[in-house]
Design a protein around this nucleic acid. Structure first.
Length: 550
RNA sequence: GCGCUCGUAGCUCAGUGGAUAGAGUGACGGUUUCCGAGGCCGGAGGUCGCAGGUUCAAAUCCUGCCGGGCGCACCA
C-alpha cells in the first residue's frame, strides 16, 4: 500500500524536510472526481514546521515516494498543496470477488476486537405505552448495537425497568382509583396521576379476571396486587411492541432488584467511605460539584428512601462490574443535566468516565393541524409506537429516525404521516434492492445466469464511469462501518445506503446488465450480486427489510 | 439568570479543519421499441443566524451577540 510515512521519513533523513512530529494527516477519496481517487493534505499540514510553501513540500514528498507494487498509476500536486493520486482501475474490480466470498460478512471490521459493550436504550417507564421518543430511541439504539456488532464488538442490548420509586407509588394510586371508580365508587382521581386510556383498559382486564375481590381489602394489599398485575401487562406489551419494531433485548434489568439485593445501599456506603457523601438537613448528599456538576445532589432523602439517582449510580456501577467497556446509554435530551454527575459518580469508583458514552437525542416534536402537540404520559396525550407502525410501517419509521443525527430535533407531522411514508427515502433503497433481485430473476428465467464466476479479465471490463462509481461505493463499506462505529453514528449508514442505491440506479440507467456478450454479462451479473449483498448487509444493520419484490 | 443543545436551499435534513457547501422533497424542463419510470438526466434555488478571533485553509475550532428547544426538585 501507499506509504507516505516512509516518504516523509526519507525526506527528513536526507534533511530535505525539517519537522519534529508528523501531523495527523488524512488520505481520503476527494469529493471531486477530477481530483483523482485519493488525496492527502499532508504537505499543507507540514508548512508550519518545515517553513516552506505547501506545494514545495509536496514536490519533496513525491520525489521520495515509491509507488512500486501499489495501484498508484499517477499523481499530481493540486490546489493549495493537495497531492492527488490516480489508481489503476483494476484494483476496483477486485472488490467483487471479495464481496461474494464474504457474503453477509462483507463490511465486517475488527475495530472492537471482541470487546464487550452494552447499549442500554428505550428503558421506558412501564407505566404506559411507548411513544415517539421511545420509538426514536429504539431505532437508534438497536441500529447502533447492530453496527457495533458489525464492527467487531460483543454487544449486549439492555432495557432498564423503572419498577421502583415514586412514580410506581403514583401508578399504584392511579390504578387503585380507576379500580374503585369502575366498581362504582365515587373516589377522586389522584393529583398528578396517570390519565391514559390504556390504564383504564388495564383495570378493566383486572376486573374481568378477579372482579370485586380487591374491593374490600386493605388498600396496601390492593395496590400491591394492581401494580404487580399492571407492570406485568405493560412490560409484556412493551416487549411485544419493540419486537415488532425489530428490537430484541438480551437483558431486562429491574431497578427494584438493585434495592432488593442491597446494591443501592452498599453503593452509597462505598461512596461515603470514599468521602463523597455528607449529611445536610437529614438527607444524604453526593458531592457532585466535585465532578463539575452545578450543585450537589440528594441520594438518600430525609425519610430514608434513596432517590432515583442513587439507584442509577448503583446500576451504572453494576454495568462496569459486569465488564462492559464502553458502556453506552441513549437518553432523551431532557436528561442532559444528569450526564456530568453520572460520569462523575463513575469516576468516584475509579472507572474512566470516558468509558461511559451517553448519547443524547433531541426530542421528537409532534405536529398536528400545524400546531405542536405536547406529549405527556400524565395527560395521556401521545402517539404510540404501535400507532406509528400501523400508520407508516416499521421500515419507514425506523429509517425516518435512523437517518437523522440524534442532535437534531425532529418534527413529525401526523397529518402528513402517510404521504411522508410514501416519500420516505427507505423506499428508494428498497426499490433498488427489489430491482436487483428482478434482474437476477430475469437472468435465471431466461437461462443466462451462470454459477461460473467472472474472470479477472472480465471484471476489468467494468470500466465505465458509472460502474467505477458503484464499485467504489461498494469498496467503501468496511471503512464506513468502522467510521460510523468509532463515532457511534449509525445515521451515517443510512446516508451511505442512499448513496449506494443512487449509484446503482445511475448505473442501471446507463448500462444494460443482460447483454449478449457473455463475458461482460457475467461481470455485470457479479456486480449486481455484489450490490445486492451490500444493500442487504447495511439494511440488516439498520433493521430494515430488504424486499425481493415490492 | 446559569447550563446543555440546535440555527445550512421554499420545506425536511447531511456535511472527519480542506479544493467549486451537498442530498431528498417541492416547483420547472427533458427522458420509456430494451433488465421494475417508486427510476434516470438537467438547469433554477445559499450573506452556512450575526460579528470578531485562531489557522496556509473555518459551515466545522474559540469568544461574544441574536433566535429556537431542553434542563436547573429530598421527581424519575
Amino acid at each position: 500500500m501507499l506509504n507516505l510515512h516512509e516518504a516523509v521519513a526519507e525526506a527528513k533523513a536526507k534533511e530535505e524536510l525539517v519537522f519534529e512530529n508528523l501531523p495527523q494527516f488524512v488520505l481520503e477519496e476527494p469529493r471531486e472526481r477530477q481530483h483523482g481517487d485519493l488525496a492527502t493534505n499532508l504537505a499543507m499540514l507540514l508548512t508550519k514546521q518545515a517553513k516552506r510553501a505547501p506545494r514545495e513540500i509536496a514536490e519533496i514528498i513525491l520525489k521520495n515516494l515509491s509507488t512500486d507494487g501499489t495501484w498508484i498509476e499517477g499523481f499530481e500536486i493540486a490546489g493549495p498543496g493537495f497531492i492527488n493520486f490516480r489508481l489503476n482501475p483494476r484494483w476496483l474490480a477486485g472488490v467483487i470477488p471479495e464481496v461474494l466470498r464474504q457474503g453477509t460478512d462483507y463490511g465486517r471490521v475488527n475495530l472492537g476486537q471482541g470487546q464487550k459493550v452494552q447499549v442500554e436504550f428505550v428503558s421506558a417507564n412501564p407505566t404506559g405505552l411507548l411513544h415517539m421518543g421511545n420509538a426514536r430511541g429504539a431505532a437508534l439504539g438497536d441500529s447502533l448495537a447492530s453496527l457495533l456488532g458489525m464492527a467487531g464488538y460483543e454487544v449486549q442490548r439492555e432495557f432498564y425497568i423503572n419498577d421502583a420509586g415514586n412514580q410506581i407509588q403514583n401508578f399504584a394510586l392511579s390504578l387503585e382509583a380507576r379500580y374503585l371508580q369502575l366498581q362504582g365508587q365515587d373516589v377522586p382521581f389522584p393529583e398528578g396521576g396517570y390519565h391514559g386510556e390504556d390504564l383504564i383498559d388495564t383495570v378493566k382486564g383486572v376486573i374481568a379476571k378477579v372482579g370485586d375481590k380487591y374491593l374490600n381489602v386493605e388498600s396496601e394489599l390492593r395496590r400491591e396486587f394492581l401494580v404487580r398485575y399492571a407492570l406485568d401487562e405493560k412490560l409484556g406489551q412493551i416487549r411485544e411492541t419493540l419486537k415488532e419494531f425489530g428490537v430484541e433485548y438480551d437483558v431486562w434489568f429491574s431497578e427494584q432488584s438493585l434495592h432488593d439485593s442491597g446494591a443501592v445501599r452498599t453503593t452509597m456506603e462505598e461512596l461515603e467511605k470514599r468521602g463523597y457523601i455528607y449529611e445536610k438537613e437529614g438527607a444524604l448528599w453526593l458531592k457532585s460539584t466535585e465532578f463539575g456538576d452545578e450543585k450537589d445532589e440528594v441520594v438518600v432523602r430525609s425519610n430514608g428512601i434513596p432517590t432515583y439517582f442513587a439507584a442509577d449510580i448503583a446500576y451504572h456501577r453494576n454495568k462496569f462490574e459486569r465488564g462492559f467497556s464502553p458502556v453506552i446509554n441513549i437518553w432523551g435530551a431532557d436528561h442532559h443535566g444528569h450526564v456530568a454527575r453520572m460520569k462523575g459518580a463513575m469516576s468516584a469508583f475509579g472507572y474512566n468516565p470516558d468509558s461511559l458514552h451517553i448519547i443524547l437525542m433531541q426530542l421528537v416534536r409532534l405536529i398536528q393541524n400545524g400546531e405542536i402537540v405536547r406529549m405527556s404520559k400524565r395527560s395521556g396525550q401521545y402517539i404510540t409506537l404501535r400507532e406509528l407502525m400501523d400508520e407508516v410501517g416499521k421500515d419507514a419509521a425506523r429509517f425516518f429516525f435512523i437517518m437523522r443525527d440524534p442532535d437534531s430535533t425532529v418534527e413529525f407531522d401526523l397529518d402528513l404521516a402517510k404521504s411522508q411514508s410514501a416519500d420516505n427515502p427507505v423506499y428508494y433503497v428498497q426499490y433498488a434492492h427489489a430491482r436487483l433481485c428482478s434482474i437476477l430473476r430475469q437472468a435465471e428465467e431466461t437461462g443466462v445466469i451462470t454459477e461460473e464466476p467472472p474472470s479477472a479479465g472480465e471484471l476489468e471490463r467494468l470500466n465505465s464511469q458509472e460502474e467505477a462509481d458503484l464499485l467504489k461505493k461498494i469498496a467503501d463499506l468496511p471503512g464506513e462501518i468502522a467510521l460510523a462505529a468509532r463515532l457511534l453514528e449509525p445515521h451515517r449508514l443510512a446516508r451511505y445506503v442512499l448513496d449506494l442505491a443512487s449509484s446503482f440506479h445511475t448505473f442501471y440507467n446507463s448500462q444494460r446488465v443482460l447483454v449478449e456478450d457473455e463475458g461482460l454479462r457475467r461481470a455485470r451479473l457479479a456486480l449486481v450480486r455484489s450490490t445486492k449483498q451490500v444493500l442487504a448487509n447495511v439494511l440488516a444493520v439498520l433493521g430494515v427489510n430488504a424486499p425481493e419484490r415490492m
